[in-house]
């Protein structure tokens, strides 16, 4: 009886240990992938912000150029003798 009980206990312990290792591996994989996802999101945010900033700058420059052109065209229309 004692031998039968002793033989049953090691197997159960091994199974329990294996299950625990699998759980730990699963958890570590999940956490690692979540970190990767977090890093991706950070990089995406940075690149998107920089692109938006450059686009905003271009738009500002275009606005200024358009204002200058409007002034030049306005002066030309008000003083047509300049082009005669």
């Amino acid at each position: 009886m004692g031998r039968g009980g002793g033989m049953g206990n090691p197997v159960n312990v091994g199974i329990a240990v294996q299950a625990d290792w699998e759980n730990r591996e699963f958890i570590s994989n999940i956490s690692l992938n979540v970190r990767r996802l977090f890093d991706f999101l950070l990089r995406f945010e940075a690149t998107t912000k920089s692109k938006l900033a450059s686009l905003n700058e271009k738009l500002d420059i275009l606005e200024r150029k358009l204002e200058v052109l409007e002034v030049q065209v306005g002066s030309a229309t008000t003083n047509p003798s300049v082009f005669n």
Binding site: T48, L55, K58, L62, L69
Partner: peptide, 27 residues
Amino acid sequence: KLTDLFEQQASEVSTYELKVARLNQQI
């Protein structure tokens, strides 16, 4: 989709830049 939309807007801005440059050249 956000990246695609951004690229579209950027291409439109570059087109407008070319148009403004053309107007500057004409003046």
